[in-house]
């Protein structure tokens, strides 16, 4: 995708007013360590947010709280109208609406690509197998990997596996997609193919929260870029403002370190 297309992608979909994720005074501790210190964040439908920051800042923990892979101790999280508590049924409902793409792909190695994709719809949404397979093939086409449907994850490259992982989440038709450093474990030449898929996804209006160091992606696609440090959102702004005019010293330091 060239520059113009990328800018066009950012223009096409703007967030509608409705909030899909609300975090109110969110706190989390890992034992004694205070990893999230009073996060207040609202994410609207069709909004695309990039979260960046140094390691240990809590950005992965933040998005993992949204689908309850991590439990928060204080504050409230409301996802798609459902509040996250210890209620397992609610948690499973939320997880069905929130897709997640992991740094290390986490595909199921003992299943074929097609089975990886149909597992969720068949067992969680109780979709009939035929329909689930059609949906799976549709999304495999979308991520340009349909010909690998009968293979096993171990036979694919990293970039291909990550695209399959994205397709797997999409098969559940989620309302929100979380990306936890999706390209950090990839060889440089494979990063582009994954980012292209993510940009296409953005173009179609998917709500996305992406933790990444790919600032080019942030610039072209994000509505907001958030900088986190020591468990707090230090700064959050539109990409133009964020990159050209960082307000806080820590943001400026971080940007100077990663934009070289």
């Amino acid at each position: 995708m060239n520059e113009q297309e990328q800018e066009a992608a950012a223009e096409v979909t703007q967030p509608s007013g409705e909030a899909i994720v609300e975090m109110i005074d969110l706190h989390k501790w890992f034992g004694e360590f205070h990893v999230l210190c009073g996060i207040n964040l609202t994410v609207h439908k069709q909004e695309r947010i990039v979260v960046c920051g140094p390691s240990g800042s809590g950005k992965s923990t933040l998005i993992r709280c949204i689908n309850r892979l991590e439990e928060h101790q204080r504050g409230r999280i409301i996802v798609d109208g459902m509040e996250l508590t210890n209620n397992i049924k609610k948690i499973e409902k939320v997880r069905a609406e929130v897709g997640m793409v992991f740094q290390h792909f986490n595909l199921f190695p003992h299943l074929t690509i097609l089975d990886n994709l149909t597992l969720g719809p068949v067992w969680v949404r109780k979709t009939p197998r035929k329909e689930a397979e059609e949906t799976a093939m549709y999304y495999l086409e979308k991520v340009h990997i349909a010909e690998q449907a009968r293979k096993y994850p171990g036979q694919l490259s990293g970039g291909q596996q990550q695209r399959v992982a994205i397709a797997r989440s999409l098969c559940m038709k989620p309302k929100l997609m979380l990306f936890d450093e999706p390209t950090s474990a990839l060889d440089p030449e494979m990063i582009k193919e994954v980012l292209d898929v993510m940009i296409e996804l953005a173009r179609e209006g998917m709500t996305m929260i992406v933790v990444t160091h790919e600032m080019g992606f942030a610039r072209s696609v994000a509505h907001r870029v958030l900088f986190m440090d020591f468990g707090r959102i230090v700064e959050g702004n539109s990409p133009e403002e964020f990159f050209t005019n960082p307000q806080h010293e820590r943001t400026q330091l971080f940007l100077s370190q990663i934009l070289h």
Partner: peptide, 11 residues
């Protein structure tokens, strides 16, 4: 990660 992937699908 296998547990997490399965959880994130809602299993």
């Amino acid at each position: 990660g296998q547990y997490e992937a399965a959880d994130s699908l809602g299993l």
